[in-house]
Design a protein around this nucleic acid. Structure first.
Length: 263
DNA sequence: ATGTCTCCTAAGAGGAGA
């Protein structure tokens, strides 16, 4: 028996609700981490999600950002944000499902290396690293899934020469991502053989999706203690080809049920 | 290729953010 844990930057839950409901019904993930809700918690389409059989924990705000955890079983011990890091931007929500702690995260974009938002991005990553370090001590079975706004390696970029040093690909951003892995986390996608030119985000402009001009910036990190139970990680490009798509595709990882003995 | 999509304010388009 396996359970799926998935992540999807939906770029407005209001607009993408039909896609999300279809995907939930098709995959029945144990947990779906959402990013870029772009709505306040009170405007989240809770009834439709509940009717689909899902519980929801929501950290929303007007217009921008916003994250959620949808789940078949209710989560426990929810935490919103990064404790001790004051931030009006809703980017992080955590809860426990069975034995597993799950974090849905929307890392800052940064805009460009010369933007004030880039400095915020690097400060935010430092705080997030410290939060994950503390979280791992309390929850050895940890999944951190979301839009990291970092392409970790050149093979995660359709044109690494053009993107060299650009935001999402800069050395400092890649170092910030690597610092998360160094805590004892693995990029689940790279635990398995994957097709070349696998991406999770494509710009809306210039027919980028049809031309596969993409970046892999949505990741599911699994703690070292969870890695033995991880059996796959897949980018589902299907929803990106629909009418009115998000610019991101959902990503999901499968884990064997840790409740069975000797698993 | 200043290319697209979504939100906001505020009553028209234009700006912010990605």
């Amino acid at each position: 028996m396996t359970m799926k844990i998935a992540t999807w930057n939906v770029n407005s839950i209001k607009v993408r609700l039909p896609h999300v409901l279809d995907w939930l019904n098709g995959h029945r993930p144990a947990v779906l981490c959402l990013q870029e809700l772009k709505c306040e918690a009170g405007n989240f389409p809770l009834e439709a999600v509940t009717a689909a059989g899902y519980h929801a924990l929501i950290a929303g705000q007007k217009a921008y950002n916003g994250v959620a955890l949808l789940s078949l079983q209710p989560g426990s011990d929810p935490v919103i944000g990064i404790p001790g890091f004051e931030d009006p931007q809703q980017r992080v929500i955590a809860a426990t499902y069975g034995e597993v702690r799950v974090i849905s995260v929307y890392c800052p974009n940064g805009e460009s290396l010369t933007s004030e938002k880039y400095g915020y991005k690097l400060r935010w990553f430092a705080a997030f690293r410290n939060y994950l370090e503390a979280t791992l001590m309390r929850y050895p079975l940890l999944v951190v899934a979301g839009d990291y706004n970092v392409a970790p390696e050149d093979r995660d970029v359709y044109d690494p020469v053009a993107w060299k040093g650009e935001v999402l690909c800069s050395d400092a951003e890649r170092a910030a991502f690597a610092a998360l892995l160094k805590l004892g986390l693995k990029d689940s996608f790279r635990l398995f053989e994957q097709a070349d030119k696998s991406y999770s985000w494509w710009h809306y402009r210039v027919n980028a999706f049809k031309r596969n001009m993409g970046l892999r910036i949505d990741h599911i990190l699994a703690s070292d203690a969870l890695v033995p139970s991880c059996s796959s990680c897949t980018i589902d490009k299907g929803p990106r080809a629909l009418e009115r798509p998000s610019d991101h595709a959902p990503v999901f990882a499968e884990f064997s049920d840790s409740s069975s003995p000797n698993s």
